[in-house]
Each structure stands twice: as C-alpha cells, then as structure tokens.
Computed example of a mutant assay.
Amino acid sequence: MSLVEVDDLKVHFPIRQGVFFDRTIGHVYAVDGVSLSIERGETYGLVGESGCGKSTLGRAMLRLVEPTAGTTTVDGTDLGSLAAEPLRRFRRRLQMIFQDPLSSLDPRQSVEALLTEGMRAHDLATDKAATARRLRELLDAVGLGANALRKYPHEFSGGQRQRIGIARALALDPDVIIADEPVSALDVSVQAQVINLLDDLQREFGLTYLVIAHDLAVVRHISDRIGVMYLGGVVEETTSEQLYREPLHPYTKALLSAIPVPDPVTEDSREQILLTGDLPSPSAPPPGCRFHTRCPWRQETRCAEERPELVEFAPGHRVACHYAKEIAAGEIVPHVVPVQDSVSSA
C-alpha cells in the first residue's frame, strides 16, 4: 500500500451573491476528481499552469481546505474521518513548505520562536537543552548557522528564508512534506541550491515529497514521478524520465515544447506547439475533455462530449486522452501545424 492515497478528491468553492452573500449561484471547480498515490520515500511532482488547482489540491490533502468530496489516506488513516484534535496530532506527520517564505514566516517572531512553535504545540520542547540541540541540528541541516536563531525573517535573503521554512517543516520529524512552489519566489541562481537541499534532506531523513510547481524544468531534476494537471484534473502521470522522453497528452506536449533549450541549433530545429484560445474559467469548465477547446488534435464529437478517464496507456504511464494511442502513432495529425520559433501560451 502506498504511503499517500488520494481518491477522487474534489474541492468546489461556492460563488455567492446577495446582500448577505447567502445565495449560491455557482461553483469554482478548483479540484475536480483527482486520484493519485505516492510511495514511501518517493518524490511526486505535480505541475501545470497557474490556476489549474495544484495548490488547492495540496491544501485539501492536509485539510487546510476542506474537500467537497473524496478521500486522502496517509499510512492507512483517512484524514477526512479524523476529528479536530486527532487531526491536529496526526498533522505532525504531514508538513508544508509554502511558496513565499516572506509571507509564511511571522515577521514578529525570531527564527527560534518560528522553529519551536510547532514543537511546543506537540509537546516536543519540554527539555530546554534537548530543544536547543534540536534547533542547532535543524539549522545545520539546512545550511544556516546557530547565530540565525536570534534574527528575524526580514534579516535574511529569499533563499535563506526558504531554508528557515524548510527547517520549520522538518522540526516535527514528518513523514510527508508538501512543497508548494518551493523555489518560484527565488532567484534562478538560488533555485538549484534549494532543490539540491531538498534532495539531500530526503536521503538523510527518509522523507516523502509532493512537490508542486508550474515549471517542468524544476520538477524534472527532483521528481521520481510527475503528474500533469489541467483545469482541476490530472491529465497525465508517469515517471520523470518517461514524461520527457515520450509525452502522450497534447497538453503535456505543449508544456514541454515551451521549455527553452540552451543549444541554439536544437532550439531552432525542434517543433513548438502553439496553443490557441484562453484557459477556460474553472467556474465554467468546458464539457467533455476540458482541454479540447485548445487541443490541436481534438476530434470534435467525442472530445467535446465525453470526459476521458485517467487510464493506463503503458505500465506506470496513465493518460486522460481519448486518442492518445492514435496521436502517438501519428494516425491523427494536429489541426494547427506545430510552428517553429514561436512561444507557446502554456
């Protein structure tokens, strides 16, 4: 059994109107039927463009946002079945690294207070000497010195603040860490350092990661498996190596074609897929396949009427596309011919 099991998870936010906002006129389908599993010690990368529901999914898995339907099971425990106090105790095993360390760290608290807050909440800071030793170990693990304890978040650079956020997540010795865009707010020169740090910490502490990002180039180097999200659902899932070697879903193909290649000769010769149209609103998703309004390979009748399920195309490779096999074999050609030297809207 996988360490983390997500089954048909949905998060629908009501759209309210009226003087007292007491009338529901619709819903935002932020997450709409996601199922995935994460093995112990694995890094699962979740990618997709902004607004596809990645961050909402991560928060719903921890019940920071209450799911509308579906279940999240961690090591055999259904989080949705837990009352407030058992859930609080269980959350010691599940921690989160947030996207913007400047806004997720309380500016009025010192680093020492930030790191010990969770430890005190779970009765792990009862011994002063042991707590001091644990704080030094945490700061050493993330590459910061003990002199950081008395400082405040504004006294650090963006990369250092993210290291403090990582240390805070490690403080409770969790099994699973959900990293929500852990490097997107950092300079490119610092991103590789943080990614390497997460990789080193996983080996040292036996961590299991869900890494949420919109940059496929980032998750490629840290993820064992990757799930691609579009408009509230997972459209493709496979190993990192397989996804880059043989993407099957048209949306994945478009995302990968938008990644710049440092070799000018290769960049000029490769095909880039130009998506047409705008990203549909999650409050009014298209019927049928939700990508069909922008898909160059769409077949009008079936794609516009029937939503494809995420099914296994090959061992360990799942895809939600009615015509994945035909597209892979070249039996269906795109309506819009892939163009050279263009920038994909993905």
Score class of each variant (00 low, 15 high):
residue 239 T to L: 08
residue 132 A to V: 01
residue 190 V to E: 01
residue 109 Q to S: 01
residue 135 L to A: 05
residue 125 A to C: 03
residue 188 V to C: 00
residue 251 Y to I: 04
residue 200 D to N: 08
residue 41 G to P: 05
residue 20 F to N: 13
residue 77 T to G: 01
residue 35 S to D: 04
residue 247 P to A: 09
residue 212 I to P: 11
residue 131 T to Q: 02
residue 185 A to H: 05
residue 307 R to K: 15
residue 273 I to A: 09
residue 172 L to V: 12
residue 59 R to G: 07
residue 243 L to D: 02
residue 292 H to V: 13
residue 99 Q to F: 09
residue 137 E to T: 15
residue 43 T to P: 08
residue 116 T to F: 04
residue 214 H to I: 00
residue 327 I to S: 06
residue 145 G to R: 11
residue 211 V to H: 05
residue 200 D to L: 06
residue 89 R to L: 12
residue 1 M to P: 13
residue 281 S to K: 06
residue 310 L to H: 15
residue 125 A to P: 06
residue 338 P to Y: 14
residue 283 S to C: 13
residue 132 A to E: 11
residue 220 R to I: 01
residue 28 V to P: 00
residue 7 D to P: 00
residue 9 L to I: 06
residue 177 I to V: 07
residue 117 E to A: 02
residue 130 A to N: 07
residue 21 F to I: 01
residue 131 T to N: 01
residue 190 V to W: 02
residue 86 P to C: 05
residue 21 F to N: 10
residue 257 S to D: 05
residue 282 P to K: 10
residue 237 E to S: 14
residue 143 G to A: 09
residue 89 R to G: 10
residue 14 P to C: 06
residue 72 T to P: 13
residue 271 E to M: 07
residue 15 I to S: 02
residue 111 V to C: 03
residue 217 A to F: 09
residue 224 D to W: 05
residue 237 E to A: 13
residue 296 P to W: 14
residue 231 L to V: 03
residue 188 V to N: 00
residue 92 R to F: 11
residue 112 E to G: 12
residue 258 A to P: 13
residue 232 G to I: 09
residue 147 N to I: 01
residue 155 E to T: 03
residue 56 T to M: 15
residue 173 D to V: 08
residue 277 G to T: 11
residue 60 A to L: 07
residue 326 E to H: 08
residue 191 Q to M: 06
residue 12 H to T: 03
residue 343 V to I: 15
residue 273 I to R: 06
residue 280 P to V: 09
residue 69 A to I: 09
residue 20 F to C: 07
residue 26 G to P: 12
residue 251 Y to A: 12
residue 295 C to A: 09
residue 121 A to G: 13
residue 52 C to N: 08
residue 74 V to R: 02
residue 82 L to H: 06
residue 98 F to V: 10
residue 141 A to P: 14
residue 313 F to Y: 14
residue 113 A to K: 00
residue 16 R to P: 04
residue 70 G to H: 03
residue 21 F to R: 15
residue 143 G to Y: 13
residue 326 E to Y: 14
residue 116 T to A: 03
residue 244 Y to G: 03
residue 84 A to H: 14
residue 16 R to S: 11
residue 331 E to G: 04
residue 333 V to N: 10
residue 287 P to V: 01
residue 25 I to W: 01
residue 61 M to H: 07
residue 305 E to L: 12
residue 58 G to T: 07
residue 212 I to F: 15
residue 101 P to N: 01
residue 40 R to I: 03
residue 323 Y to M: 06
residue 180 D to C: 09
residue 334 P to F: 15
residue 93 R to M: 11
residue 107 P to E: 00
residue 131 T to E: 01
residue 74 V to P: 00
residue 223 S to W: 07
residue 110 S to V: 00
residue 227 G to Y: 09
residue 31 V to K: 02
residue 334 P to L: 09
residue 315 P to S: 06
